[in-house]
Simulated scan of single mutants.
Amino acid sequence: MVMKNILATGVAGFIGFHLTKRLVKEGYRVIGLDNINDYYSTDLKYDRLTQLGIKKGSIIEDKPVPSKTHENLQFIKTDLENKAVIDDLFADNGFDVVINLAAQAGVRYSLEDPYRYIDSNITGFLNLLEAARHHPVEHFIYASSSSVYGANTSMPFATSDNVDHPMSLYAASKKSNELMAHTYSNLFDIPTTGLRFFTVYGPWGRPDMALFLFTEAMLNDEPIKVFNHGNMERDFTYIDDIVEGIKRLIPKPPTPNPDWTGDDPDPATSFAPYRIFNIGNSSPVHLMDFIHEIENQLGMEAEKNMMPMQPGDVPKTWADVEDLFEYIDFRPQIKVKEGIRNFVEWYKEYYKSEVQS
Results as ranks from 00 to 15, higher is better:
I294T: 09
P311G: 06
S283Y: 13
A8H: 09
L219I: 04
I276T: 09
E222F: 09
P315I: 08
P223D: 09
D241S: 13
Y170G: 00
A217R: 12
A172F: 04
D235Q: 09
L169V: 14
R108D: 14
M3D: 11
P273G: 10
E222H: 13
Y28C: 07
D329M: 10
L89D: 00
S176P: 04
P66K: 08
P156V: 08
F343S: 01
E293F: 07
D266I: 04
N5P: 01
Y347A: 07
N37L: 10
R206L: 03
I239Y: 04
P156I: 04
D289M: 06
V11Y: 00
I239A: 04
F14M: 13
D266K: 09
E81D: 15
K56F: 02
I190M: 01
H229I: 07
I276R: 00
H135P: 03
D88A: 15
Y170P: 02
H182V: 06
Y201L: 05
I36A: 06
I334T: 15
I250A: 05
P136K: 11
W204V: 10
K252Q: 15
Y115F: 14
P251N: 09
D221A: 12
T9V: 13
M180P: 05
N35P: 12
V137D: 00
A158W: 06
I294N: 02
N93F: 05
Q104H: 12
I54T: 09
E345S: 12
Y46K: 06
I36F: 06
F271R: 11
T199C: 13
I276W: 00
G339A: 12
S160P: 10
P66H: 11
P284L: 02
D289Q: 13
D263G: 08
F277A: 01
K252W: 10
Q104M: 14
I276Q: 05
E130I: 11
N162A: 15
H292W: 11
K175H: 09
V2L: 11
N228M: 03
F125R: 00
N231F: 14
V226N: 05
G106T: 06
I59Y: 11
E301H: 09
D259A: 15
I328S: 08
H139I: 01
A103G: 02
Y350W: 11
M3R: 15
N342W: 08
A103E: 05
F212I: 04
R116M: 09
N296L: 11
R196D: 02
Y28F: 13
K83I: 12
V137G: 03
I239S: 03
V285Q: 05
F140T: 00
S282P: 04
E349Y: 13
G27E: 11
A12M: 04
T317W: 04
L7C: 03
M232K: 13
D240P: 04
K83H: 12
A151Y: 15
Y201S: 04
E293H: 14
E71I: 10
K21C: 06
I190A: 01
A268T: 00
D43T: 15
P311C: 09
Q356Y: 09
D259V: 07
D88V: 13
V85R: 01
I276M: 07
F95C: 03
P191F: 03
L80R: 10
